[in-house]
């Protein structure tokens, strides 16, 4: 078996772990679907359908975010339960292990958000299903970036509670300062200019925007937006991979993370 197939093997094992956490999956799916339902039913009299059309692609991206951050939880558990040490005895390079984890994090995010995308395409009129499919590889890179960020947070967390605090902090900052749930104009109206700029270039905003405009709106794909999405996501994936690699190296030197 080649190094590459071993890498995919480890990634697949970790990826399957994500879907074995049934209760977590149930919570994630119910949260995402209930967001759609609440907007569609409860707020029906308060908001118009345009907001629902705006929100649903955002929920797909928020789902991707939640699923990709689960990578950090799995890494944290593997570090503390010693499974990482088992991985370190397998015939695969340390860099291969790191890539496998980031890859499986990316896969978890994209597979989960693809389920949501199917639901979204069923409940919201769409004009660019091919565009939506073409955006998926870019969303995969975004997912690896978020997986990388959560790997970084897991690597610096001494305790499980601390990891959750970091992960929630990440969620609050990345989802709140974004155009996932409200348009950029709303942010500009209430928050200082620099915050609005951050929200505009937040990779979650870019992905949600691309889905709205091209996937559901039917506009041609804006390559500059997708390029910016890649440019914003890749450094996150690299920094997370680096942090995880440092942790594995620390284990080799000190015997513990």
């Amino acid at each position: 078996m080649s190094e590459l197939s071993r890498l995919f093997h480890v990634a697949r094992a970790d990826f399957s772990y994500f879907f074995r956490t049934k209760w977590l999956m149930a919570v994630l799916i119910s949260l995402s679907v209930s967001d759609m339902l609440v907007t569609a039913l409860v707020y029906r009299g308060l908001m118009n359908f345009d907001y629902f059309r705006f929100l649903v692609p955002g929920i797909v991206v928020a789902g991707l975010f939640s699923a990709a951050t689960d990578t950090g939880r799995r890494i944290w558990l593997a570090l503390r339960e010693g499974v990482v040490q088992y991985y370190m005895t397998l015939p695969i390079r340390t860099s291969g292990l790191v890539v496998a984890y980031i890859l499986s994090g990316g896969l978890g995010g994209i597979v989960y958000s693809s389920f949501l995308l199917v639901i979204a395409l069923a409940v919201v009129p769409h004009q660019g299903i091919v565009n939506a499919l073409l955006i998926i590889p870019f969303m995969f890179v975004l997912s690896t970036g978020i997986a990388g960020l959560s790997a970084f947070l897991a690597s610096i967390s001494r305790r499980g509670e601390i990891y959750w605090v970091y992960a929630q902090g990440l969620q609050v900052s990345m989802v709140t300062i974004s155009t996932v749930f409200y348009p950029a104009q709303t942010i500009e109206g209430f928050l200082p200019g620099p915050v609005a700029t951050i929200a505009r270039y937040n990779p979650l905003s870019l992905a949600a925007g691309a889905l709205r405009d091209s996937g559901f709106g039917g506009n041609p794909l804006d390559l500059s937006v997708l390029g910016t999405l890649l440019a914003a996501s890749l450094p996150l994936a690299v920094s997370g991979a680096l942090a995880y690699w440092v942790i594995l190296r620390t284990i080799r030197l000190r015997g513990k993370p």
Binding site: T21, L77, G82, V83, Q85, Y86, T89, P91
Partner: peptide, 16 residues
């Protein structure tokens, strides 16, 4: 690692 196998003192496995 290709030629070696270890059974750890504390069992390590995928929990699920």
């Amino acid at each position: 690692r290709e030629v070696m196998g270890i059974a750890f003192q504390e069992a390590r496995g995928f929990w699920r």
